[in-house]
């Protein structure tokens, strides 16, 4: 039996790094849970709404605000593409109008939090991430060190960064290097 392990296993070693004193940043990780992409052509919207309502989610959602219900999260990442976490198995919804794709093993989540989390983000991406412009519940798709990521704001100073597993170590290292001047605590499970 294959044992699945996080691409960040070698990085998730608890400890303190960087500047001394109070730590402004906490870094951690978690695996994604049943992350599915639904995409389509033609009558995508009707087909997608059927899937979403079966999962307890309302409407197609917006391009910047995540939809949440029953422990599930949906992100409308393009006009005809939606990502859903905690979706269970969506393969039965495959049809002429809808393609379903299991991305659970293709993404991992980096947890970035702490009083200086927004300062670190603003060093990494050229987007306004102040609390007014990027409040809780909002998400954005961008690149960190030229790696495409989705960043979900989870609270005042907490973010989840969905990165491709093949580039997760690179993204982690870039975040960690930028966070060191603020003092970093790595939180392992």
């Amino acid at each position: 039996m294959l044992e699945l392990c996080s691409p960040l296993n070698s990085k998730l070693q608890a400890g303190r790094f960087g500047a001394q004193g109070e730590t402004g940043i906490a870094l951690g990780g978690r695996p994604v849970r049943d992350l599915w992409q639904i995409a389509g052509w033609g009558d995508f919207e009707a087909a997608a709404i059927e899937v979403l309502s079966d999962l307890g989610l309302c409407g197609l959602g917006s391009y910047s605000l995540a939809s949440r219900a029953k422990g599930r999260t949906a992100w409308r990442i393009a006009p005809d593409k939606i990502l859903i976490e905690n979706a269970g198995n969506l393969s039965d919804y495959m049809s002429a109008n809808l393609a379903t794709l299991d991305l659970s093993h293709a993404r991992t989540v980096i947890l970035l939090s702490g009083t200086q989390a927004r300062d670190v983000l603003s060093q990494l991406i050229a987007i306004d991430v102040t609390e007014t412009a990027f409040p809780e519940g909002r998400f954005l798709q961008t690149g960190i060190h030229h790696v495409g990521v989705l960043i979900q704001c989870m609270g005042q100073n907490a973010f989840e960064i969905y990165a491709p597993v093949t580039w997760a170590e690179t993204v982690w290292e870039v975040i960690c290097e930028n966070a060191k001047p603020f003092g970093v605590e790595i939180v392992a499970d």
Binding site: Y63, S64, A78, P79, A126, I127, L140, Q141, T142, G143
Partner: peptide
């Protein structure tokens, strides 16, 4: 039109 105002380096 989807993501809002972004730096040209994303394109």
């Amino acid at each position: 039109p989807i993501c809002g105002l972004r730096n040209e380096t994303e394109f």
